[in-house]
Design a protein around this nucleic acid. Sequence first.
DNA 1: GCAAAAGTGTTGGCAGTACACCCATGT
DNA 2: ACATGGGTGTACTGCCAACACTTTTGC
Lengths: 247, 247
Amino acid sequence: MIGTTGHDPEVSLLAVTVDLVIFTVRGDELHILVIERGNAPFLGVMALPGGYVRPGETLDEAAERELREETSLDGSALHLEQLRAYSEPERDPRGRVITVAYLALGPDMPPPVAGTDAREAVWVPVASILGGGTELAFDHATILRDALEHARSQLEHTTVAARFCPEPFTVGELRRIYEVVWGFKLDPSNFRRKMTRAEAFLEPTGEQRFPDVGRPAALYRRGSARFLVPPLLRTAASHDDARVHPG
Amino acid sequence: MIGTTGHDPEVSLLAVTVDLVIFTVRGDELHILVIERGNAPFLGVMALPGGYVRPGETLDEAAERELREETSLDGSALHLEQLRAYSEPERDPRGRVITVAYLALGPDMPPPVAGTDAREAVWVPVASILGGGTELAFDHATILRDALEHARSQLEHTTVAARFCPEPFTVGELRRIYEVVWGFKLDPSNFRRKMTRAEAFLEPTGEQRFPDVGRPAALYRRGSARFLVPPLLRTAASHDDARVHPG
DNA sequence: GCAAAAGTGTTGGCAGTACACCCATGT
DNA sequence: ACATGGGTGTACTGCCAACACTTTTGC
């Protein structure tokens, strides 16, 4: 059915963009990097950073390029991963544009650069977007919801949570990442047991950090493992109460 | 950095295709549907079914259309899910073509249609491709590997395995799906316990099936649940061997 | 024909493990 | 206040045994 001529298929060309969902943990809230649009449509509305894929580059390269432009951090410092493609014909009022969404996780970063291009980038709490306090352009709210669920799931089975922590870090800091992303408290004792028993997840430095208050905490670096075995599952029991973000 | 004119961004248009990894279980082997290419490049080489995305349709619609054309089954009978995009500039020798891969799971289907278009579709054991016995065009072998790993992971956490079974089906048939896709034996007792206890996974019909040999088995239909809680994990212990009972 | 064996599905029990929950202690 | 460590009861699961139901085989 493709190519009714039987010779040259009816190749339709599409505009392709990449859009980035860049998560970080600031304070006790999950944040995402958004830009204020400087052009129509959605002039002045917040949107995910992104841009068109250039002829010679892969999608991964385009995502890394956009990430560098927005955060002035090289991709090696962050976890960057393709999410999925979004292709609703009406998702962009200018015409047919499909986008490939990427998920990026990183430690709390320096204030985003705003000088190199006309767009102003800001960190916004994810809760204020999902709660309706901040609108996102296009279908970017849908992409954000998918990215959040994917990130929450990734924390169960992989070691990416450590990418949120500047090295070296304590077990308590890593636990706070889980609590902020998942939205509920974890038992410190059980968490420590699982994390330290997981093979090649946490690599002890032998040093300690002395906080303003409380017992000193052992410091760790990221290990070589990419998967967390056994996984740390979000069980039904975990959701009981103790929401980090009530209301 | 996008749009050096500051007004009209340098929009590059790309050819976009969808490619389908259609899995089914035939006998005791996992099979995939492939077509023999009728045009250059890779003339005569096996490839994943797929085709160009048309201007008005979403990627999902394009994937469903290709699926219908190749299997003469509507999408409602199969599980169809987007995998990810592949975008290496050199993946297609004709020029820049990015593809979005889809994963389809379904019961053993009627012989694929070969008359409507010039392409001949055949079921091939996955093992013969991964083992090197059958070559695939483009980067389709990579896509297949990714799809297989994704399918294996999906069986752990979701109820998609039941999509391989024509209704009604027995617990033993469902267990064989897991064994074939994962490649090792499962304990019948434990498997039954987990599956029947999972909420809304298996819906008893009250009927029985009388096999050629052995005790009659209770028949079930797919329940409404989409996720399998608690998950059925591929633990290290499960990989022991292909034997049910050691010794 | 009848008994035994073989093959598959189903049920239940036992033991080891993992985890949620709680408590204790160090700094 | 927080990190760390340990202990206990419960739930889950791997392993195993027994039983149920049917067909096939042997005599």
